[in-house]
Simulated scan of single mutants.
Amino acid sequence: MKVELNEKPFLENGRHKVSITKVESGRSEHKDVPFFNCRFENEEGFVNHRFYLNEPGQPIMAELFHAVGIDDKRADTDQLKGKELSIEVHERTYDDPESGKEKTIKAARHFKAVGHSDTSESI
Rank of each mutant, 00 (worst) to 15 (best):
Q79G: 01
H49N: 13
E44V: 08
E7H: 13
E91T: 14
E43Y: 02
N13S: 11
G26Y: 07
E88T: 12
L5M: 13
F51A: 00
S117C: 05
D72C: 04
D96S: 08
E84Y: 03
Q58R: 15
A75Y: 08
M61T: 07
R27P: 00
E29C: 04
K31T: 15
I60V: 15
E24N: 13
R15S: 10
A108T: 00
K17W: 01
F36I: 00
E63W: 03
Y94E: 02
S120H: 13
G69A: 08
H30Q: 11
A75P: 00
I70V: 14
R39V: 15
S120D: 09
I87R: 04
T21A: 04
R92Y: 15
Q58S: 12
F111L: 00
K83N: 02
K81W: 02
I105S: 02
K17F: 08
E55D: 15
L85K: 00
V68Y: 03
K106A: 09
F65V: 06
A75G: 01
D72M: 07
D95E: 10
A67G: 06
I87W: 05
K106L: 08
K31W: 10
Y94V: 08
N13L: 03
E84K: 13
M1Y: 10
I105G: 03
P59T: 04
V3A: 11
P59I: 04
V23R: 05
H49V: 07
S117R: 09
I87L: 07
E41G: 06
K2C: 08
G57Y: 05
K31A: 14
I87Y: 05
P56A: 03
G26H: 03
K81C: 01
E29A: 10
E24M: 07
E44T: 12
G14K: 07
H110P: 00
I20W: 04
N37C: 11
F46A: 08
Q58V: 15
I60W: 06
K103G: 00
E24R: 10
S25V: 03
D118P: 00
S25K: 06
D72T: 14
K83Q: 13
E102L: 09
F36E: 01
A62W: 05
P34W: 09
F51K: 01
P56Y: 09
A62N: 14
H49D: 08
H90L: 12
I87F: 06
N42V: 01
S117D: 14
I87H: 04
V47M: 06
D95M: 08
Q79N: 11
I87Q: 02
S120T: 10
A113H: 04
I70D: 06
S25M: 03
D96L: 03
T77C: 03
E44Q: 15
P59M: 00
S28A: 15
L64K: 02
S99V: 06
R15P: 02
A113S: 14
E24V: 11
T77L: 00
L53I: 07
H16E: 03
G26F: 07
F10M: 14
E12S: 14
